[in-house]
Amino acid sequence: MDSPNGMEKQLVTAAIWIVQLVAVLALPPLVNGIIRKSKARLQNRVGPPLSQSYSDLFKLFRKEALVSATTSWIFRAAPYVVFTTTLLVATLMPMFSPYPPLGWMSDFILLVYLLGLGRFFLALSALDAGSSFGGLGSSREMTIASLVEPAMILSIFATAASAGSLNLNAIASSVSPSISSLLNPSQILAFAGLFIVTLAETGRIPVDNPATHLELTMIHEAMILEYSGRHLALIEWASQIKLLIFFSLLGNLFIPTGIAASVSLVDFVTGIAIYLVKIGGLAVVVALVESTNAKLRLFRVPDLLMVAFTLSLLSLVLRFLIR
């Protein structure tokens, strides 16, 4: 492992940062496309082309934005806050390089709470227009988010405690990519816990349905019902980035093969390739889960999250209490 130093290192870091920035901006619609495509295939439909999500975003950006007369500056600011916080978190995540830019800042608690900042403003904006849908979505979103948080903290706790740090980069680089450490029961349980958390946080099917506009079942969609044009585009883009963030978390903390071992170009490219495979695989798994499960009743969601919480707790017990 050759570690560059000084000027060269800074250049490399800057280059990596730019690559990562481009990746987190460009990849999410593709991931979304993969999920949509594979869902369609699973249901014997042709489905939209992979580029559909890009076209959707592009179209939304070009369309006129409508703003309700009852709203305040919160409504206009929220899309930017959501997009900004999500993008910032995405650029701080460990993805495919050993020298992540600003890696020292990828503290798990900080990132979770940054996402929380975005959600806070989105939930406020939903109440701003004064329609009952907004209140409904905002209330449900905040409820589910508050139940997700403990499970999320616990799900990475076991791995973090082994690494002795809550910094995601430190955790990702401390997980050894040997089979027995990847497939040990504690890791599998924590993965399952975090997977459920991912479904809940990104509004996927057993918890929320991203494709519905039925008031009884909407959560996220109800919140953003008043948005249109570029505002909606920013929010949609942000929620796609959020999915990528959680996929990276799942992929890099539990399947850490592929984070390039050095800064050589070959390793770097291989790293990116492996990362793409992992993300693609997870997208297909999510599509599979979405196609085989029905959306849960709202008051059954706490049970599911409790399962995630207990799985994470069990992973911790198996790793540390049972020697």
Binding site: F120, A123, E149
Partner: peptide, 17 residues
């Protein structure tokens, strides 16, 4: 730690309200 996370997330919900 989990309960602290629960607390602050619920606090966020409460202040959205």
């Amino acid at each position: 730690m989990a309960l602290l996370a629960l607390t602050s997330a619920l606090a966020a919900a409460c202040f959205v309200k």
